[in-house]
């Protein structure tokens, strides 16, 4: 039996990648592109096109991280061309010590947690990204570090600060809700 040609291997890999990650990648790119789904689709199509050109044996091992990395870079390229790239680093300004009860300790907060993804918009871009990659795209810290180019320590710090702030925002919502 002859060995599979590189092109047929690439085709199989692209089909597999599309089956597994097509929708997830569109959602991820749309978040970077401020909800522009059409552009997100273009970015994801471009990502799969690049997968055709990549060496399947090298990519297969870290397929997910590779796809997210390429998708992210393409989306950021689009933003750069549009001059829409910014970093809203609001951590220091918004951060404050809060001694009110944590929302997880309240029994009447299940509805409130549904708002967590909306409240996520109030976090800085980098915090949003690591939290989305972790809980929406099921990426590990290691994957996130590969995708974003950050160190594992930075990913851990951003995740820690971001989740703390999200809890604070939920607490504020809870107190407003109860008032």
């Amino acid at each position: 039996m002859p060995a599979p040609s590189p092109s047929s291997e690439s085709d199989a890999l692209v089909r597999e990648a599309m089956g597994l990650y097509e929708s997830q990648l569109i959602a991820y790119a749309a978040n970077i592109l401020a909800g522009d789904i059409e552009r997100a689709r273009d970015v994801v199509q471009d990502t799969f096109l690049r997968l055709f050109q990549a060496d399947p044996t090298r990519v297969r091992e870290n397929l997910k991280a590779w796809l997210y990395t390429v998708c992210r870079n393409r989306a950021l390229d689009v933003l750069r061309k549009d001059h829409r790239l910014d970093l809203g680093d609001e951590d220091k300004i918004l951060s404050f010590t809060d001694h009110r009860p944590d929302p997880s300790q309240s029994s009447d907060t299940s509805e409130l947690y549904d708002r967590a993804w909306t409240l996520l918009e109030q976090l800085s871009k980098n915090q949003q990204e690591v939290i989305r990659l972790k809980f929406h795209h099921d990426c590990s810290y290691k994957d996130i570090a590969r995708i974003t180019g950050l160190s594992m320590g930075n990913v851990g710090f951003l995740m820690h600060v971001g989740l703390k702030k999200l809890r604070t925002l939920l607490t504020e919502e809870l107190s407003e809700h109860s008032n």
């Binding site: 959602a27 947690y113 967590a116 809980f135 099921d138 809890r167």
Partner: peptide, 21 residues
Amino acid sequence: DATTTLGERLRHTAPPANLRL
């Protein structure tokens, strides 16, 4: 525990990814 709870809720309520090319 609070962090774990928040993480689980985030996973549970994550917006569905159903968009296609």
